[in-house]
Design a protein around this nucleic acid. Structure first.
Ligand SMILES: [Mn+2]
Ligand SMILES: [Mn+2]
Ligand SMILES: [Zn+2]
Ligand SMILES: [Zn+2]
Lengths: 145, 145
DNA sequence: ATGCAACTGAGACTCTATCTCATATTATCC
DNA sequence: GGATAATATGAGATAGAGTCTCAGTTGCAT
């Protein structure tokens, strides 16, 4: 299996773009973080590690990571997007607690089959899906009003 | 079955809030439109019909409609949220063409069951879900590169 | 009618994200 | 290596969504 850097370099090359030190620093930091993150957190972490990089470059790089399939837009909340790296990980979806806002990841074969079934029914050639389930976690079930 | 106005009035009353003419105008317009819409479209339509209402009031009203369960946030795209009214309609999810951006609605019992199954597996009491499937519609399958 | 809490609109403001442009890198060719 | 051209960066300007403030207004209760 290729490393994420190889994948990104090939993706960029095929678009006539270069793997610059800034883009590589963003990629490395994105794969160093195993939680969901947003752009500002990423910027702060890069800064703390002494990387000199502008917000503009980060904002320019993330859509490239998404387009290359290495990274995923997870959800939009608090006025901005949140991401996760996905390359090298099994596909998963998210269960969100409306009480404490925690997010639990899950995988379910039935959902994968549903994608195929629905695509077929509508004549679509599907490429993926995003499922969010909302509810209350065990701890929040008592407190909800 | 209650009308959407009754539902909204009761929701507001229970929060010590009033069903004002502005809020009612927004509600009526939201239920007059059967497509997905965004706030600016809504504002323009209200304006064209001679309603004098500020953007601030619309921005204040939509979260109330969502909280009351009459309206749904469908997706975030082009830098802003898109909505749909759902009261009186069977729950559905969305299939999105990555080529022409068209959106096809569907309903699938397997997905409903998946919500319950996954909630149970993780100890969550679920209240709903949002599934988006991505792919290419029949017309776009040839053109995609 | 009086009092009071809720509400509205205008515009200021915040924040995310994009754009511009001058400067800097990098690849390629000689 | 040096010249050239294409691509990239950073700083700051800009655009746009959404929120907030506050003075004036409305509507309900007594
Ligand atoms: Mn995740
Ligand atoms: Mn819909
Ligand atoms: Zn919880
Ligand atoms: Zn299409």
């Amino acid at each position: 299996m290729k490393t994420e850097i190889e994948v990104f370099r090939e993706f960029l090359a095929q678009k006539g773009m270069r793997l610059t030190p800034e883009r590589e620093a963003v990629l490395v930091e994105v794969f160093a973080e195993h939680d969901h993150f947003d752009i500002d957190e990423l910027f702060m972490r890069l800064r703390q590690k002494g990387q000199r990089i502008s917000r503009a470059s980060i904002y320019r790089t993330l859509p490239l990571l998404v387009e290359s399939g290495l990274v995923n837009e997870v959800y939009f909340e608090e006025g901005h997007l949140h991401y996760e790296h996905i390359y090298g990980h099994e596909h998963h979806c998210h269960l969100r607690c409306l009480g404490c806002r925690q997010i639990v990841e899950f995988r379910d074969d039935g959902v994968e089959e549903a994608e195929k079934r629905i695509g077929q029914a509508k004549g679509f050639e599907t490429t993926g899906h995003k499922l969010e389930i909302y509810g209350y976690c065990p701890q929040c079930q008592g407190k909800k009003k």
